[in-house]
């Protein structure tokens, strides 16, 4: 549900991101069938890239959670927040403990913003992402 929450936030600000001249893309695991279903269910129109082998995840050493993370207070807070926004947990992918990240890059190989998730529901705030875009 946290992915859907984050994707919904990005979708809401997609026109703002585009107006700044930036591209927007998401990277996920799972197969094409899974990705297409996610795209249709979430209504996203930006590119959804598929990383079944987790090549990109490994390249930037994104973190993994474990069962103990489910007991963390920040997880409960994030779950309550996502639930209140109407997001529900759907079928999990093959690696449910893989954590995500948000970046703003470029132009060129320039890192403008980095947020690497520490636990479930630890997504970058969209306002921080937008602030990293050039004006």
């Amino acid at each position: 549900m946290f992915c859907r929450e984050h994707v919904a936030q990005l979708r809401e600000h997609q026109s703002e991101i585009k107006a700044s001249g930036a591209n927007l893309a998401a990277i996920g695991m799972g197969d094409f069938h899974y990705a297409r279903a996610f795209r249709e269910e979430t209504g996203i129109s930006f590119p959804l890239l598929i990383d079944i082998e987790r090549t990109a995840y490994r390249a930037v050493e994104l973190k993994s959670a474990n069962l103990l993370h489910l007991l963390r207070r920040d997880n409960a807070v994030a779950r309550k927040r996502a639930n209140a926004a109407g997001h529900r947990q759907h079928k999990l992918g093959e690696n449910p403990f893989q954590l995500g990240a948000s970046f703003v890059f470029g132009p060129g190989n320039v890192d403008r913003f980095t947020h690497i998730s520490e636990t479930f529901g630890d997504n970058a705030s969209v306002s921080d992402v937008l602030s990293a875009l050039p004006r």
Binding site: C3, A22, A25, I27, M29, A101, V104, F105, P107, R112
Partner: peptide, 20 residues
């Protein structure tokens, strides 16, 4: 190619946990 997304303009790149 991922770099093509930010070669000539900025890009917001989000790694999802999964599609759940």
């Amino acid at each position: 190619r991922l770099g093509s997304l930010w070669e000539s303009q900025p890009a917001v790149i989000v790694f999802l946990r999964h599609y759940g």
